[in-house]
């Protein structure tokens, strides 16, 4: 990417951050940026699985949960981040590969249902395995520490998550340009034709899930640190659907779609909450106003940009 091209892509994000910083205060804007970047990393996993490999997944939230719990358990036992983070990524990848096994036999919605079952199994296991996860009571996670320095300031957290997102984007970009990326797209367009061309479709799908799982695990690890307290209910089916929605709103076929989708999913409700404060009297108190407005924004995006914000019109 040329320097002016890179600037053109980064400029809207910086302007958004700047506007949010002036309007809402720097810590709040940086907190938003942290969450948007973290969700975008998880969204990249969905973009790989759904947008590139063309598979249906309803259980991506469970892979985020695996990463979050791996990180929380290891960090809680004093394991340095240089070891715990790769472990979280590896567990996410292993979970993704495991969730993809039914794809060898099943396809389409039937396979989608199996990912749903996988998500339910993971959530149940997190509740039951109390000795490790403290069950439904939840698990506290210490602040992310790099070389003994705790990243507990909003600026440090935002920089860490943005840097991780950029690394993840770079990695995915290289991957999509590789032989494997082409294999994913071939499987997405026509699985039988891809196999006739010598592509091992089952292997390609498993690898898509493993990469998607690794990205989800990475996002989960960061999420655990930023939130500081994780419990199984945070990674329920609603969360999986939220990630799926994120990818489709942003544009499932493009990597930038994950970032745009995360912006809509994470920041728009907060923006609505701020605007609500400006409403007069009892309007500001109306229950469900934010959910209703958020729904309207989603419908508008889907109608106006059916290919997602980053996709073609």
């Amino acid at each position: 990417m040329s320097a002016p091209g890179a600037l053109r892509r980064v400029a809207p994000w910086l302007l958004l951050l700047l506007a949010a910083g002036v309007w809402l205060g720097p810590d709040y804007a940086l907190g938003q940026a942290t969450m948007v970047a973290t969700y975008a990393i998880a969204g990249l996993g969905v973009v790989i699985v759904v947008g590139q490999a063309g598979q249906v997944t309803f259980g991506q939230g469970a892979l985020v949960a695996l990463g979050a719990y791996a990180e929380a358990v290891l960090a809680g036992r004093g394991v340095p981040v240089i070891l715990s983070l790769p472990a979280a990524v590896a567990l996410g990848a292993a979970g993704g590969a495991l969730a993809s096994l039914p794809a060898w036999r099943l396809g389409g919605l039937y396979f989608g249902m199996s990912t749903l079952a996988f998500a339910l199994l993971v959530e149940e296991a997190l509740v039951r395995w109390e000795g490790l996860t403290r069950g439904a009571a939840g698990l506290a996670t210490p602040a992310l520490a790099l070389a003994g320095v705790a990243l507990d300031a909003p600026l440090a957290q935002a920089l860490a998550s943005l840097a991780t997102l950029l690394c993840a984007l770079f990695f995915c970009r290289r991957l999509l340009a590789s032989r494997l990326g082409r294999a994913w797209r071939a499987v997405r367009e026509d699985e039988a034709a891809a196999e006739a061309c010598g592509i091992d479709a089952a292997r390609a799908k498993t690898l898509a899930f493993a990469v998607g799982g690794a990205l989800s695990g990475l996002a989960g690890a960061l999420y655990a640190h930023w939130i500081g307290f994780i419990s199984p209910e945070q990674f329920g089916l609603m969360f999986s659907f939220e990630l799926l929605m994120l990818a489709f709103i942003g544009g499932a076929r493009r990597l930038a779609g994950a970032a745009w989708g995360a912006l809509v999913i994470v920041a728009i409700p907060q923006g609505i909450a701020v605007l609500r404060d400006l409403l007069p009297g009892d309007w500001a108190r109306a229950a469900g106003l934010e959910a209703m407005l958020f729904g309207a924004v989603i419908v508008a995006v889907v109608l106006l940009r059916p290919g997602g914000i980053a996709g073609r019109r």
């Binding site: 809402l24 205060g25 709040y28 907190g31 938003q32 909003p154 945070q234 907060q270 909450a273 108190r285």
Partner: peptide, 23 residues
């Protein structure tokens, strides 16, 4: 009373807390 709706979601709760503290 400055009210923020987190909808039982800790992610929204974190952002709401930041807003209430800083803004």
């Amino acid at each position: 009373l400055a009210v923020e709706d987190a909808g039982y979601d800790p992610k929204r709760g974190i952002l709401a807390a930041r807003k209430l503290i800083q803004r």
